[in-house]
Design a protein around this nucleic acid. Structure first.
Lengths: 242, 242
DNA sequence: ATCGCCTAACTGGTCTTACCAGATTGGTAG
DNA sequence: CTACCAATCTGGTAAGACCAGTTAGGCGAT
């Protein structure tokens, strides 16, 4: 049923994962060299490298130049580089998708925020305050908050102490990066966003689940409406050349 | 802040996405050939192919041999081939992760099932009944239900009419593939699973949100406990050679 | 025997060239 | 206008080469 297609590349991906499981490799362990793997799998180094590119994008491996290929725990360090892309995917600036993203975020983040209220540690709280400070500075500067906003929301999710939840919601959060960029173009919106975030942290500090879920619901909802408004006026943006 | 590293490959990924956005390419549109892209980006075809492998794994593109590279809507046809991997990632058979996955599934699926009750169409219902029939046959055969179980749960999520939700929860569902395989080894569990699924469909058919959320909560919870039990006895499985 | 350094082998990153076979397309013959 | 055929283009795969850091093994000095 699954695994219908069978290219050298995806085969190599599979075989590599098999290898990892088979040899019980854990985080930090080093895999055989690309040349070695290509021999084992009976494919070109090129195919192996394509497979490794995929594994890298999935954050399952890390390729250290001139050194080797190392396994890493995908649940940790879900930093935002390649993954940004998975998100902003060919997503059209379309009402349907915008609505779906908004709804999904509300549903999931509400739950995450609820857990965060229950379980946040003092360290989490400190982290949130720190992010809040950075945020305030950026707002004052008139900088674009798109990335910082994502970081903040994910930090809250992380306070739920559920790493899988973070991993799951990261792409969802990043999905709106494109719109987010325009969204934070307005100074008023930037200011309002800061106020909202302060309220989040206050609720989480007080472990006030009801307020927290209410806030996130409103926050995302109004953000979505603002974006929709932007979409209607700014409709098409003019950056097409050849 | 983001995009710290800068390899040819991830550059190519970025540039390709830029190209797509820039030219307003939509689903089904064809991208320039690999050779063309490699010229545009000033990198080797190899690097371009690595980038395309990543985009393929993300299901953003589809490479048709001897024809071209086509854009597809990642929100649709989230079939399970390469993606299976993203999931089963180096995940250890460890209580912490198992617990996190279970919790995340309960949180998210509850919400999804609730929406499914509200919005499921007759077509969704028909699809679920069809999957149920297949499921029953497989149970009778004593086949492994791992894949079919995933398909069922995702079909329910799809009934929420929120494609983003499906996209988001797919990896989460697949994350437990490894355990799921062993889980469905027991005939008793297979039988119970079928009963649970029938109850799901009944609740969704009746648009009974309360029952549906209760069911999914119990379903996932008990499944998790069973898995935990399995983990404690079966502990380590013996398949290490060279 | 131990320590430290230096070199040689190894590794990932990138590029070049090449061939295959199916898909596509253009033009030509009917 | 249609039908057909060949040149061209495409993705898939292979083999080989060079670069510049990394690593590790061995040799020499102490």
């Amino acid at each position: 049923m699954l695994a219908t297609v069978s290219t050298e590349t995806s085969d190599a991906v599979r075989k590599t994962l098999e290898f990892v499981r088979h040899h019980r490799l854990a985080k930090g362990d080093r895999l055989p060299s690309e040349r070695d793997l290509s021999e084992r799998f009976g494919v070109t180094r090129g195919s192996v490298r394509e497979a490794l590119a995929v594994l890298d994008a999935m954050r399952l491996t890390e390729r250290k130049p001139k050194s080797g290929i190392y396994l890493r725990n995908a649940l940790e360090d879900s930093g935002l580089d390649v993954l940004v892309l998975q998100a902003d995917l060919g997503l059209p600036f379309d009402a349907q998708v915008t609505g779906d993203v908004t709804e999904a975020r509300i549903l999931c983040e509400e739950q995450a925020f609820r857990l965060a209220c229950q379980r946040r540690t003092d360290a989490d709280l400190a982290k949130l305050h720190q992010l809040l400070d950075t945020y305030a500075v950026l707002v004052a500067n008139g900088s674009n908050l798109a990335d910082e906003d994502v970081a903040f929301h994910l930090a809250v999710v992380a306070a739920s102490q559920n790493r899988v939840l973070v991993r799951t919601l990261t792409p969802l959060m990043l999905m709106s990066t494109g719109w987010r960029r325009r969204y934070f173009g307005s100074a008023e919106i930037r200011q309002r966003s800061l106020i909202d975030h302060r309220a989040f942290v206050a609720a989480i500090a007080a472990r006030d689940e009801a307020t927290a879920t209410m806030l996130v619901h409103r926050h995302v909802q109004t953000a979505a409406e603002d974006v929709r408004a932007l979409a209607e006026q700014g409709a098409t943006d003019p950056d097409i050349k050849d």
